[in-house]
Design a protein around this nucleic acid. Structure first.
Lengths: 335, 335
DNA sequence: TACAAAAATACAAACGTTTGCACAAAAAAC
DNA sequence: GTTTTTTGTGCAAACGTTTGTATTTTTGTA
């Protein structure tokens, strides 16, 4: 009834557990004959190595912790998939946690990863996170940490981030080129690098075109469909906005619905651009112009950087910026 | 530099590791005074229990394995969230794996979970899975297993599944009531319970209305947007279909696009109903009528059933059917 | 004050691996 | 044919907990 151990294999074969261990781990210090016998016996007994015992003895595990705000975001789920594609073949497996955008959950998850003695962590912090001490304590514990997308420069270690500045710049420049002049910006907490960078890109594009940067055109805390809707109605009732650059596709939906609810048309009356290229973006009417992020590259680079640190002990602390792409569709072209 | 252990705490306090262990685990056999001292010292040293050592000694872990086809499906991600809401407070954490709809990955993931000695598994199998031996071997190993959504009755243990039959029946009955008569069905592999049940509901609704069940109206392997598109074009070019019941929202998008690409209109010429209520369903034009599943209930029940088995050793093998809801929107009402 | 009962703590083994070191047997070198 | 080297195994300790049993200390009772 009990699960087979290397001791069972050893006994059955008349050798010692150490030999079995060496045989299974592919050590050179064991003859081909015994290795074969051990492998056969292991198969026969349905042996599955006990990773706890192994990790305990070796002082490290082959589990990588991955902490994201939510798994069901197009970007994050694709990063996860890319990370798995690198990590699994390299012999690691992923312990995936979600913060659900809450700082409290983020701290809890980090604790859980610590307790599980993960070999490293790949994370993107929550929207509420504006203090990074709990993340710094991870690197202080000497656990390799890679930040991606949402990342603080105050935390040591590599950061793999999207070119939020250029994405925003391209988006707003495109709106200007399309003839829009009073461009508002719906965004999230500016304490999050992602949003501050997009805001910077927005400002830069306006400056470049000598358009004024108006205080009342920039609305924080507008990142969900609901808040996007509310802020947009408010905006349209109090200002002369003719276009909205949203820092996310969800708020862009809200914006479009608000615009339509006021009897105006997208893109004829108001132009809209989103960010992230969620799957629904091209299904909306009008199809949403948005900025596509290269989730595959982000995950790939993050995973490789982590392996580099774990296996080579490199102490790299740099920022890798992954290019983004503006997808021009219908919501931003008026004729 | 090294991480603190209970031995360090014990030494610092002049007691034995066993006392520390009991103090931290809240055993009654330890005085309040020492418990307090231990807790303070633990805090001071930044002690984090080593779950590997603990699990190894106890012979079981507090990790639950969760295996789903993909995390970025509306339904699955919400089930995960519901499961976490039950399991985390109960002291368990989740090891989430994805099969990406491939049998090979599913087997690999199950192996990984076994090696990690998870205390139990909550899973929904891949679309490719038509043989369940690898899943049965889990229950043979005496690891508590809960199947949800996609589940085989040949595997022992509880199954928490959506009322696919009723959902399909309601959807098709609704189409019939709306005046559609030649209703086609786009679905997935009928070896998957989910699809066979939806097919059964479809047939039942047709029978009830004395409508003929036509061979050429039922198309398997049409579950993605792309295959939905192709099958629908093919369908419209060779038959007199006037409505399509899709076993998933993704194929419904494909169907709608195919219909529109042939110059026809939804719902006026062809009615469409989907299944799953993906977030984009209500954003489509026309808004997609679809069947909503109660992911929260599914996850909740699955998690509770698992805890029941782990902690009480119950040997329940039953099927819990979670009600679904038809969301009537625009794509299925012609005037 | 003595003694039993209860409470608190100590002891030691065990969980299943891995690995440095020792050692024997076989192969190679002289 | 002896010595040296190589190759394959065995021995035993260690990783950090938990827990049954033994032992000590405290409390309560006569």
């Amino acid at each position: 009834m009990k699960r087979a151990t290397i001791i069972d294999i050893a006994k059955a074969l008349g050798v010692t557990p150490s030999t079995v261990s060496r045989a299974l781990s592919g050590s050179v210090r064991v003859s081909v004959a015994t290795r074969k016998k051990v492998e056969e016996k292991a198969e026969e007994l349905g042996y599955q190595p006990n990773v706890m015992a192994s990790s305990l003895r070796r002082g490290r595990s082959d589990t990588i912790g991955m902490l994201v705000p939510r798994v069901n975001r197009h970007f994050f789920s694709h990063v996860i998939s890319a990370v798995e594609q690198i990590l699994n073949p390299a012999g690691y497996n992923l312990l995936i946690c979600q913060s659900y955008e809450r700082l409290y959950n983020e701290k809890l998850a980090l604790q859980a990863l610590l307790k599980n003695r993960v070999a490293g962590i790949i994370m993107s912090h929550s929207m509420e996170t504006d203090n990074f001490d709990h993340i710094k304590s991870i690197t202080n514990e000497n656990i390799p940490l890679i930040q991606f997308d949402r990342a603080s420069a105050t935390v040591a270690g590599p950061r793999i981030i999207n070119d939020n500045f250029s994405g925003a710049y391209m988006a707003v420049k495109h709106l200007i080129k399309s003839g829009y002049k009073r461009i508002a910006h719906l965004t999230g907490a500016l304490s999050v690098n992602v949003y501050s960078e997009r805001y910077r890109g927005y400002r830069y594009a306006l400056e470049e075109a000598s358009l004024p940067l108006l205080e009342e055109y920039v609305l924080e805390e507008a990142i969900t469909k609901e808040t996007g809707f509310e802020r947009t109605r408010q905006l349209l009732e109090t200002t002369e906005t003719d276009a909205i650059f949203c820092a996310g596709d969800f708020s862009a939906i809200g914006a479009i619905q608000a615009i339509q609810s006021l009897g105006m048309k997208v893109p004829d009356d108001i132009g809209v651009v989103g960010f992230a290229n969620e799957p629904f973006a091209e299904l909306l009417t009008p199809k949403l112009t948005t900025v596509e992020q290269n989730a595959y590259d982000v995950g790939n680079k993050a995973a490789r950087a982590l392996i580099e640190i774990i296996e080579k002990g490199s102490l790299i602390t740099d920022e890798e910026i992954i290019p983004v792409r503006l997808l021009v569709r219908e919501s931003s072209i008026k004729f």
